[in-house]
Design a protein around this nucleic acid. Sequence first.
RNA 1: GUGACUGUAGCUCAGUUGGUUAGAGCGUCAGGUUGUGGCCCUGAAGGCCGGGGGUUCGAGACCCCUCAGUCACC
Length: 403
Amino acid sequence: MRFTLEHTDRSGSPGKARAGLLETDHGRIETPVFMPVGTLGDVKAIEHRELKENHAQIILGNTYHLYLRPGVDVIEEAGGLHRFIGWDLPILTDSGGYQVFSLAQLRKLSHDGVLFKSHIDGSKHVFRPEDVVDIQRKLGSDICMVLDECPPYPCSREYAHRSNELTLQWAERCKRRFEKTEPLYGHTQALFPIVQGSVFDDLRTQSAEELVDMNFDGYAIGGVSVGEPKEEVYRITELNCALLPEEKPRYLMGVGSPLDLLECIDRGADLFDCVMPTRNARNGTLFTTWGKMTIRNAAYAKDFRPIDEACACYTCRNFSRAYVRHLSQNKEILGHQLATIHNLHFYLWLTGEARRRILDGGFRSFKESLLKRYAENERTRGQGQDKTSRPRRKRRDYEALES
RNA sequence: GUGACUGUAGCUCAGUUGGUUAGAGCGUCAGGUUGUGGCCCUGAAGGCCGGGGGUUCGAGACCCCUCAGUCACC
């Protein structure tokens, strides 16, 4: 894997937005980029073909979930995750560290690793840092993640400190195992560690510095988006990005809303993933350049315009708000699909457009215009007003956004 | 015309032997969802309980009358 920093746009504020190129054996990834979450080897409610049509460059998988089902033996026998799921572009696999947080009721932490009680059948499974690397070797993901502990928010300084120490040790163990093992399927793999430290600046700093000293291919910032205020996410991202090497990619885990993406791109993050566009699509929340809309609302019952008239996605080209609302209200599978296509198209357009604007120096105006629109939309939401539409213009994927 | 059954929220219905401010689901309105155990969660609005009279300390429940609907039989 190779990362090339192409340009840093200092026009924004704080002004550290980067455009880069991440090259893997399964293809190039232009950053900043949003990575759709495909926990079980599929991005929910959307086909691989449609992901590609909407310019997805890389998707996620989850070590813990794939280990439980279908099991690593199945995937290994299939020839790795790419072949098993029929996806030939890059894949990043999360280690299961997040499940240490989200499935806190079902696991026990020890110095050595995590003991999970399966949410499927209650069976017990030990995940040591070394196990997680071995599994990801068998999955064959292009980017592997170290096992970490994602502490909850709020958490005490003492807890954050202990957790931080554990995550650092685990990162080192993962790296050692990673270096002692080889890829199984003929393509190279990279390993990213995860900066932790909760919301404590000194712990965040220590975590970043020690991980940088270990010299990884890229770095992730974790432990955010677990319930803390947005400002904390931004502050931590800025702090951590400043401590990470310029020439390596930075992955901000679990972030976020469209505005979060722009704020964090502006602070130097390159890679993002979040369930928001896919999960919210299934729950009836659609994202547009004007803000979010709850498509189930009665206001759309006879609204035969597309979700966003400026959007070029399959859903907006062919279907009306009224129809998507009808499907969503009836929880039709097609409704989930159309909403997911739209939301992912928007997210992928958003990071792609951010990249184009970074390269041409217009990132600041891009970010500020979107911020302004979202703020205006939030002011008038829930008052029965519709600010999500604009006079008809050529469907060219949100061109002339600053107008 | 006779008989039976049914009238409770916009819709479909619960409401125990009559006992506080009448509930649910759906719908409506709104909010939430951030390295996906959840197509899920949370809130709000919305009822002279068909109408009238009576019994009772107290009636959505009991009695009478009446209106409407459904079914059966003339």
